[in-house]
């Protein structure tokens, strides 16, 4: 199927884009198009106006700072894979990006697009939750930053207003020594995950887990922080101990039965994948600690 007619604009400045977005017309923002265009083709999205933000300057930047790694909304998935900056500052992002679709999808798909689309099985929203990232949001009337956990509120639903745009995502740096890992289960290479888990651990001076960020995708209407697991991780000092905390993940997620998997299978996978991700994250954190 092919898109139904819409009006198209390609603003040259963010202000121009925001003005159009705030005009009250039924508008959608087009970035990489890898989620939106299928919806247009299937007539599931029927906007009157499409605002193509690809020409906007300054939204493709990758900026490391003390506060963390700031990714402009137009940074492409493929860039997350190839950027040494990203790999150094937030290795979790590079590892997760490798699992996004196929190269043809990654070449176009953007960080902001994935965050705003908020597919519950998508990798970047999950990493944003695990990293306690904040989403920079702009509208004609101003800007605000929202913690990822408050941003993703339901199935394909975010706290983004109709006149707002995702401007950037800020991923805080983990206190070192740290290690991270992503584990994903999909039926075929490149598919959306049935369930995925992202984990990052920082060790304290005593070699024990001092800080943990764990998130689960594909096990509920939105990506979820595994708070019970995170709490259980603090103070753990062995791979077995770290693995064992995965059992708590069931309390953190609320999957439902659907066409592809039962809720109980998703819970089961979340636990298995959490254990695997945590063990690898632990080993990496340990290696980082020993390298110091």
């Amino acid at each position: 199927m092919k898109p139904l007619p819409f009006r198209y604009m390609k603003p040259q400045t963010l202000d121009e884009a925001l003005e159009a977005l705030g005009s009250g017309e039924d508008a959608k923002v087009l970035a990489g198009g890898q989620s939106l265009v299928p919806l247009l083709n299937m007539h599931l999205a029927r906007p009157a106006l499409l605002i193509d933000v690809n020409a906007l300057e300054g939204l493709s930047t990758i900026e490391p700072s003390d506060a963390g790694l700031r990714l402009g909304t137009l940074v492409r998935h493929q860039t997350l894979l190839t950027s040494s900056e990203v790999r150094r500052a937030v290795p979790l992002l590079a590892e997760a990006a490798a699992l996004i679709g196929h190269e043809a999808i990654r070449a176009r798909g953007t960080v902001g697009g994935s965050i705003a689309h908020a597919d519950p099985a998508a990798e970047l929203p999950m990493v944003a939750i695990a990293k306690r990232a904040t989403i920079g949001i702009r509208s004609a009337s101003g800007s605000r930053r929202v913690p990822a956990e408050e941003f993703f509120i339901g199935y394909l639903m975010t706290s983004l207003g109709p006149d707002e745009i995702v401007e950037d995502v800020l991923f805080p740096m983990a206190p070192s020594p740290s290690g991270s890992a992503v584990e994903e289960f999909s039926e075929r290479h490149g598919d959306f995950a049935l369930v995925a888990v992202a984990a990052e651990l920082s060790l304290g001076e005593d070699g024990r887990v001092a800080r943990a960020g764990v998130a689960v995708a594909g096990a509920g209407p939105a990506p979820a922080a595994a708070r019970e697991v995170e709490a259980a991780l603090i103070g753990q000092a062995s791979p077995e101990g770290v693995r064992a905390t995965a059992k708590a993940v069931a309390a953190d997620i609320a999957p439902e039965d659907d066409l592809h998997a039962s809720a109980s299978y998703r819970k089961h996978l979340a636990e298995i994948l959490a254990a695997r991700a945590l063990e690898r994250a632990w080993q990496r954190a340990k290696a980082a600690s020993e390298a110091r």
Partner: peptide, 27 residues
Amino acid sequence: CEHGVCGACSVMVDGEVVRSCLMLAVQ
């Protein structure tokens, strides 16, 4: 497929492979 899965429409745009069913011509 016209929904970005089958890859039959793959072309190179500025040296990168893209799905031409997921890109508007104006882009």
